[in-house]
């Protein structure tokens, strides 16, 4: 019971400096650069990413091929730029699918509680009992390798993190008095959930989603590397690194540049997430 109350904060709520703005901006700039590269791949890429040039195999970086060529003479720069399309798409689709499932489940379980909650949370318990990457590999293994099956596997597996996060937040928000007030005012459950609960739990989901994108991209590229994700000759960064692995001693550029691409893209997502969470913590 919280009948007794504190009259005032112990000391005046002096806000901190606006931490995080610079990071978020830097991250957003990185992401924007990659988005432009991906959408404008046809314009920016000097070559067709799949054009074989058996004369210019394993060419080191030079004026004609800034990032060199791979074992089939394909231009690494063009493949990195086209690869952005695949990896960015993977990041977005791979976050949105589980997010949609997880947020819905979390809202329903947290708001209604009771038996619904118990059943849904049991399903969550069972899903988290499987190591994330193993279950993804198992599902992809059964459904067959490929990007679409990877996203399906994510939707089946990765939603639990969102469901837990949202449920925990809903349990807090639902006890707040404005939700009680909305119930006392006779608003329907969908109105309360969508208008009063959801907007107030979105903040932490957003922050998590940006970090999750990094995990989705890294896991997806790992699958590509293992031969279970995007299939050759698709220009996907993980696939490219797998292609370059046998030649890494004489042709380091084939592996190096896709990896750097992945780091910078991931960095964009993490910086945005970090910046947002610092800002949120300050204003909270």
């Amino acid at each position: 019971m919280t009948d007794v109350v504190s009259p005032a904060p112990v000391h005046p709520a002096a806000p901190r400096f606006r931490h995080g703005t610079i990071e978020a901006a830097l991250g957003a700039a990185l992401l924007l650069a990659w988005l432009i590269a991906a959408f404008g791949a046809g314009v920016f890429a000097p070559y067709d990413p799949n054009a074989l040039d058996l004369v210019a195999m394993l060419t080191p970086p030079d004026a004609a091929h800034w990032f060199g060529t791979d074992h089939l003479g394909r231009d690494v720069l063009s493949r990195v730029i086209y690869g952005a399309r695949i990896d960015i798409w993977m990041g977005f689709a791979g976050v949105i699918a589980p997010l949609a499932v997880g947020v819905t489940v979390g809202l329903i379980a947290g708001y209604f509680g009771g038996l619904t909650d118990t059943i849904l949370m049991r399903i969550v318990d069972i899903t988290v009992a499987f190591p994330f990457f193993i279950l993804v590999i198992a599902i992809v293994g059964v459904l067959g390798p490929g990007l679409v099956n990877y996203i399906i596997a994510l939707a089946l597996v990765a939603w639990v993190a969102y469901a837990r996060l949202v449920r925990a937040e809903v349990l807090v928000v639902k006890r707040l008095e404005y939700v009680q007030a909305a119930r006392a005012l006779g608003f329907s459950d969908p109105v309360i959930i969508l208008r009063h609960v959801l907007p107030n739990v979105l903040g932490s989901i957003t922050i998590y989603a940006w970090t999750d994108a990094v995990m989705v991209i890294l896991a997806g590229a790992s699958l590509g590397f293992l031969g279970l994700g995007a299939q050759p000759p698709t220009a996907e960064w993980g696939v490219m690194i797998a292609d370059g692995q046998p030649y890494v001693l004489q042709a380091w550029w084939i592996c190096l540049f896709p990896g750097i691409a992945m780091v910078t893209l991931s960095l964009g997502f993490i910086l945005v997430s970090d910046g947002l969470s610092r800002r949120l913590r300050v204003s909270a």
Binding site: Y178, A181, A184, H196
Partner: peptide, 23 residues
């Protein structure tokens, strides 16, 4: 009947900030 009751009986809460939707 329930809607009519909701209109007839209303409540004001303890915590000034938590009783309003921050958005």
């Amino acid at each position: 009947d329930l809607t009519a009751y909701r209109r007839a009986v209303q409540m004001v809460f303890q915590s000034p900030f938590d009783s309003l939707n921050p958005r």
